[in-house]
């Protein structure tokens, strides 16, 4: 969850790069609304309870949810012109990419906006 808060702290810089931020969770719309309100998130948090987008990108992590259900593995993508141009798949699900590192990767991969 804290990575969403980290993204929010740099959101104006992402916007300056002409980049939209979207987070995806397996939670319900109601739970996501709670997260958006709690952290004051100005970007969209989408609900993927059926893991449709998660599966389309090969991110399903079987049995890793707190209730033993399937969840997406933590992953971050940079997408440009509809195509994935960069991805970060952590090898340790406790450790996520920081907003600063992501911003640097965005500038490097996509160039000046």
């Amino acid at each position: 969850m804290s990575e969403l808060h980290g993204l929010q702290t740099r959101i104006t810089e992402f916007e300056k790069e002409g980049t939209r931020v979207i987070a995806v969770s397996p939670d319900s719309v109601e739970l996501n609304r709670g997260v958006v309100d709690r952290f004051g998130l100005s970007f969209d948090v989408l609900s993927d309870p059926e893991l449709a987008l998660t599966d389309a990108l090969g991110l399903r992590h079987e049995g890793a949810g707190i209730d033993g259900g399937d969840v997406p593995r933590p992953a971050t993508f940079i997408v440009q012109d509809g195509r994935i141009v960069w991805r970060d798949l952590t090898d340790n699900w406790r450790v996520r990419i920081q907003a600063d590192e992501l911003l640097a990767a965005l500038r490097e991969v996509t160039g000046p906006s």
Binding site: D27, V29, G65, P74, I78
Partner: peptide, 25 residues
């Protein structure tokens, strides 16, 4: 979305997009 609006991710990615997957609350 958390506001209950349908968001087409492919359409959102026409320009530049950061797409973050996390394991949920």
């Amino acid at each position: 979305s958390a506001r209950g609006e349908a968001v087409d991710v492919a359409a959102a990615a026409r320009d530049k997009l950061i797409l973050v997957f996390y394991r949920g609350h």
